[in-house]
Nucleic acid binder design. Sequence first.
DNA 1: TCGACTTTGTGCGTGCGTTCACAAGCGGTA
DNA 2: TACCGCTTGTGAACGCACGCACAAAGTCGA
Lengths: 251, 251
Amino acid sequence: MAAQRGEGDTTATPAEAADKERARAIPEAAVARLAVYLRVLSGMSESGVTAVSSEELSQAAGVNAAKLRKDLSYIGSYGTRGVGYDVEVLVSHIERILGLTRNHSVAVVGIGNLGHALANYGGFPGRGFPVTALFDVDADLVGIPVGGIPVNHIDEITAVCLEREVSIGVIATPPPAAQSVCDRLVSAGVQCILNFAPVVLQVPDNVEVRKVDLAVEMQILSFHVARRADEAAGVSVGNNGLGVDGMVIRP
Amino acid sequence: MAAQRGEGDTTATPAEAADKERARAIPEAAVARLAVYLRVLSGMSESGVTAVSSEELSQAAGVNAAKLRKDLSYIGSYGTRGVGYDVEVLVSHIERILGLTRNHSVAVVGIGNLGHALANYGGFPGRGFPVTALFDVDADLVGIPVGGIPVNHIDEITAVCLEREVSIGVIATPPPAAQSVCDRLVSAGVQCILNFAPVVLQVPDNVEVRKVDLAVEMQILSFHVARRADEAAGVSVGNNGLGVDGMVIRP
DNA sequence: TCGACTTTGTGCGTGCGTTCACAAGCGGTA
DNA sequence: TACCGCTTGTGAACGCACGCACAAAGTCGA
């Protein structure tokens, strides 16, 4: 911890090394937004847009312009002052930082409703994530192709994942099976797991887990709607119908 | 902004008002975790567990014990020192804070692969979110029941949502349709939207949007795997193969 | 009844992330 | 070539959230 930002590295290609060096310092939240910027930029690129200003891009991505510039500054200085950013240049740099240059192959475990949906996505939007393996416990499903890929039995996870060099595992199983599936994926060398099962997974330090829990998302929304309803009902900070100092905000 | 925490409210039921008062102060991040605690607690309750300490609960939820206690303190003091928390009590309080006492009915728009999966969830795990309406543009789908609910045409969103008092809208359409669908939901009075389409939605201030973007999640994972690979390759802070001070951490 | 132990609730310091504001830099123009 | 206006990149201040560490408070046993 608290490693001093020593600028004494002299090995490797200058630009490359600088990127890797920087990758550590990018805040988690900024990484998520970079992915959004990439999506917007890709759309612009397809529409023939070649240049964009931070103001335009930030609006399209739904964030603050200053925040966008700071986020982009984490990956380097690729803009032109007085002009803006070259769309293609930004796309390629963000892709490199996000590690999208290497092709990640994805395995989906649990071919239920959600698993089907994921398998049929077939190469997630924004490309670069080909689904190359599917697994399920149900013997009736084994061998049947879903989205063009045949389903393997769950016991084959380790072998198949090693063989096809799967780098990202997606868990879409019922909750009780999730941990066991996770363990198998880990033992197959998978270091990234996207978990749709409402379970807290136990993994070694070298494995990254992201979870998507639809019920949690719903409950967060529910919280906000409840808060809104309460505010509307006038149960706010000593609010008796008037503003704090008798002033009406946004009449 | 900067409203002083005035303790001069004398209206409404004491406990209720205190809750609403507090709801404003709960950090966004804490709300998300409360939902996780609720899930874990529900599981414990079903297993017959009646009491739990912050240490146990925090481990089950995968967070720091101190953080858990702080999160729970946002909703009130319902623990017993020297003992712990009563599971049922916590469950009911978290449910109230998250607004789960009122039944939210959910509409899913876009009955493709993902929409099917969502519709078949039928009342999301952890109950309280009954799916009561489905919509799609495809005339062939209209009338066909999915997960027990017949599909309506997308033009009927406003009427049906108003009639069934839908409070949460889920957008699972292709990207180009998302904004238009969103607008219709909003005009039907829906104030909470869960958006699976990779698009930045424009909504009025009084509407809450949460987005789930699978490609973004993948890309975040990709970033981490890339960072790990770089570290392993030795492109770290002046690392020449040895630890910072020549010591091997975790041999 | 009293003491010792256990666990909660929270005040406070620290670190991270966001925002502001402005200097630096570049293209266009005369 | 020199000036002007526009946009980037970033230093610095702010605010929030996290985690520590401890006092408060309750239970259990003697």
